[in-house]
Design a protein around this nucleic acid. Structure first.
Lengths: 105, 105
DNA sequence: TTATTTTATCGTATATTTACGATAAACAAT
DNA sequence: ATTGTTTATCGTAAATATACGATAAAATAA
């Protein structure tokens, strides 16, 4: 893009759009569903459940971690990922507020 | 990107990630807030409230319309946009489901 | 008709995203 | 020490997103 103008908005608008960006790929939605449904937080099992290369999954995990939707914990040579309840709660309430009104057309 | 693999996911995952993509820019979050808070659906007033050129705002409106979050109605030479309640409700419940569990780390 | 207003679209430049193989880094096991 | 396992990072190619000026299109107003 030419010059980004994202910093001309409020920090709340920027934060929520950043959360949405983290959710804007089906692989990342699926990762959250996997972490939601099972305790299999280990990267290897996540990779096995996705039709993507290990390097690509690692990139997607990094993006989810960047906005605080998930957290990683080192366990020997393995890494265990899990949902971050605090961020999920905050995102949910921000989205609820955005989606609260009815249409007008 | 090399080759997109988005079609290897479920249609629900693809749909929700597409909604998230539409929300992944602060200008589009702000447009939804404007439509949520006022009846000023006319494009001109939306442009006036954003720090972006008219062509850019039109692109953002197109993206929101693409996923059905808003609808446009022609009113003479003007166009009136509004929220689409049906899509908002569906998106809200899908996100609620995704955000229902607590973390594990 | 001729202008004016309003919005969408085209063309374009630059930035970011997505994907993967290759490699590095960190630990475990032999 | 060497080997194997696991995950992150680097480098890179191609696609997509963002921004704007210029222009088209469509209705109103003069």
């Amino acid at each position: 893009m030419a010059i980004t103008k994202k910093d001309e908005f409020t920090s709340e608008e920027i934060w929520l759009s950043d959360i949405a960006k983290a959710l804007s790929h089906p692989a990342r939605i699926k990762i959250l569903k996997i972490l939601n449904e099972t305790d299999s937080c280990i990267v290897g099992t996540i990779v096995d459940k996705l039709p993507l290369a290990q390097a690509t999954v690692s990139q997607h995990l990094k993006e989810l971690k960047r906005v605080g939707l998930i957290e990683g914990e080192i366990d020997g040579p393995k890494v265990c990922y899990c949902l971050n309840n605090k961020t999920l709660t905050r995102a949910k309430s921000a989205l609820d507020k955005l989606f609260s009104k009815i249409g007008c057309c």
